[in-house]
C-alpha cells in the first residue's frame, strides 16, 4: 500500500512538473523552472507564475477532487458506475456557476461563482441519492443521472443563448467539456478552499465506507452513523466537484476511470481507494491537460474531449460486464 502511495505521488509530481514546462511560449524547462522559483524581470516569470502555475495547480486539485468524489460515490452507492459527470452532479454544478456569472451575481463578488456551483452540485447529489439510494439499484441511478445531466446542460445552454453578449453562446462548449486554459491565481483562490473542504469530508468517510461493504445493517451495528455518512458524501462531493466546475467547467469521466483502474491495486477496500483515487485523478487530469496542449497547441481543445475518449470505452466495457454478471 505504501508502495502504491509512493508511486502515485512520484507520478503526480512528475506530471505537475511536465505541465509547468508545457505551453505555446518557447521557454526552456530549466529556464522556466528557475524563473518560477527565483522570479526576475521580463515576461518569463510572469508566464510561469501567472499562467502555467495556476493551470498546473488547478489540474492537480480538480483532478484529485473528481477522482475522490468518484471513489466516494461508488463506495457509498456500492455501484461502480457512479461518477459525478455521468450522474449529473458536474452538470448541476456548472449550471449554478453559469447562473451566477450570467445572472450578474459574480460581478458583485467573485465568490458567488463557486458558491452557486456548490449549491448546484449539492442539490444534484441530494436529488440523486433520494432517487437512487436503497432499492433503486444501478440502473435507476444511471437513468436518473442522465436525465439530470441533460436537464442541467439544456438549462445552461438556454441561459448562455439568452445572454446579450454575442460571445456567451460560444461558452457552452467550455461549460460542457471543461478547460484549464488561461486560468489565473484568482481562480485557484476561488476553487481551492471549497475543494479542500470537500477532500476532508470525503477522505474521512473511509472507515464508514469499509464497514458499508458488509451491508447497511452490519455497518450500523459497527457504530457507523448512516445519516451522518450520507451528509458527508453529499456535502463533500458538492464541494470537491462544485469548486472545480466553477472555474474549469464540466470535466467528465475522471471519477469513473480512476477508481476503476486503481480498485484491483487497493484490495477493493473503499478507504484505500479514496486517497489513491485522489492522487490518480490528479495524475489523469494533469496528463489530459498536457495532452490537449501538445496535440493541438493552437486549438484550445477542451479537456472533456480527452477524458471522454479515455472514459467512454471503459464505461461501455463496465456496462457490458455488469450485464453479463446478471446486471443492474
Amino acid at each position: 500500500m505504501t508502495r502504491l502511495a509512493a508511486a502515485l505521488i512520484v507520478l503526480v509530481a512528475a506530471l505537475f512538473s511536465a505541465s509547468l514546462v508545457t505551453g505555446p511560449a518557447s521557454i526552456g524547462a530549466a529556464e522556466g523552472l528557475r524563473a518560477l522559483i527565483l522570479g526576475g524581470d521580463g515576461p518569463v516569470p510572469m508566464v510561469m507564475r501567472e499562467i502555467r502555475l495556476p493551470r498546473a495547480i488547478l489540474g492537480a486539485t480538480i483532478g484529485a477532487g473528481l477522482g475522490l468524489a468518484g471513489a466516494a460515490l461508488q463506495g457509498y452507492l456500492r455501484n461502480p458506475l457512479a461518477e459525478p459527470g455521468l450522474i449529473g452532479v458536474t452538470g448541476t454544478a456548472t449550471l449554478g456557476a453559469v447562473l451566477a456569472i450570467h445572472g450578474g451575481l459574480s460581478a458583485l463578488t467573485p465568490l458567488a461563482t463557486p458558491a452557486a456551483a456548490l449549491i448546484g452540485a449539492g442539490l444534484g447529489v441530494a436529488l440523486l441519492m433520494s432517487l437512487a439510494a436503497g432499492q433503486g439499484g444501478a440502473l435507476m441511478l444511471i437513468l436518473a443521472g442522465i436525465a439530470l445531466a441533460q436537464l442541467a446542460a439544456a438549462l445552461s445552454a438556454l441561459v448562455l443563448n439568452l445572454s446579450p453578449n454575442p460571445y456567451a453562446a460560444q461558452e457552452i462548449v467550455f461549460w460542457m467539456m471543461g478547460s484549464l486554459a488561461d486560468r489565473s491565481m484568482l481562480h485557484v483562490a476561488l476553487a481551492l478552499p471549497a475543494m479542500a473542504v470537500g477532500w476532508v469530508l470525503l477522505l474521512t468517510t473511509g472507515r464508514a465506507l469499509d464497514a458499508l461493504t458488509l451491508g447497511e445493517d452490519a455497518a450500523a451495528g459497527m457504530g457507523v452513523n448512516l445519516a451522518r455518512l450520507r451528509w458527508q458524501i453529499v456535502l463533500g462531493t458538492a464541494a470537491a466537484v462544485g469548486g472545480g466546475a466553477a472555474v474549469a467547467g464540466g470535466i467528465g469521466f475522471v471519477g469513473l476511470v480512476v477508481p476503476h483502474l486503481l480498485r484491483p491495486l487497493t484490495g477493493a477496500r473503499p478507504a484505500a481507494l479514496l486517497w489513491s483515487s485522489a492522487l490518480g485523478g490528479a495524475a489523469l487530469l494533469l496528463a489530459a491537460d498536457i495532452a490537449v496542449r501538445v496535440t493541438f497547441p493552437e486549438r484550445d481543445l477542451k479537456l472533456g474531449v480527452v477524458t471522454a475518449l479515455i472514459g467512454v470505452p471503459l464505461f461501455l466495457h463496465m456496462l457490458a460486464r455488469a450485464r453479463r454478471e446478471g446486471g443492474p
Partner: peptide, 19 residues
Amino acid sequence: PPPGTARGYELLAHPVVQA
C-alpha cells in the same frame, strides 16, 4: 466589452494582460 459577460472577454482581464 458588450453588455453581459462572456468567457471570451474574461481573458482580456487576466492579470497577465493587466501586468
